[in-house]
Amino acid sequence: MKTKLSLLGIAGLLMVFVSCGTDQSASSNATAGTSEAEQNTPLGQASVVDEASDPNILQVAIGSEAHSTLVAAVQAAQIEHVLVNAGPLTVFAPVNEAFDALPEGTVENLLKPENKATLAGILTGHAAPGSFDVEGLKKEARKGRKLYMADGSYLEVTTEGEDVLVAGAKVIATIQTSNGIINVVDKVILPE
């Protein structure tokens, strides 16, 4: 019972940590055991505590200062669970400067609760099912294959010298994670 309580405590803490800016609270989660508990878990697998596995896409992003805007956006859109899913997933992760480069007020506007769906749509447009590291992307470019994205769009992959670009966004780093690949990019990819 003690263990159960402390686990709940950890889950509760995580909840507060990850879901700041949402209307979920630790106290509502602490009522697990009633039917309410089932409804109060929007984070899904994102609330799993696992220190043994390699970090997943969400954990890596949260740990990256260069991606604080992206993480805030993911949290505002409440799509954390997508980034911890079994995948496999390739995420093109714009750095903070990429968001800063958007027209003034764009990010603030997207972070508003009423624009949650639009924001989620833009973010899922940065995720591709499958595992594509730089070599994999170069192969896509060479073979002329487009990347099918989670929002249903197809993105063109091109190369310029040693650089790889996805819909014009340049890949500046690649990180292997436990459930897929993060390609850090210098631009936000906006739907056409």
Binding site: K4, G33, A37
Partner: peptide
């Protein structure tokens, strides 16, 4: 034991 909770 509620869904998500553990047995003793």
């Amino acid at each position: 034991v509620a869904p998500g909770e553990h047995d003793e």
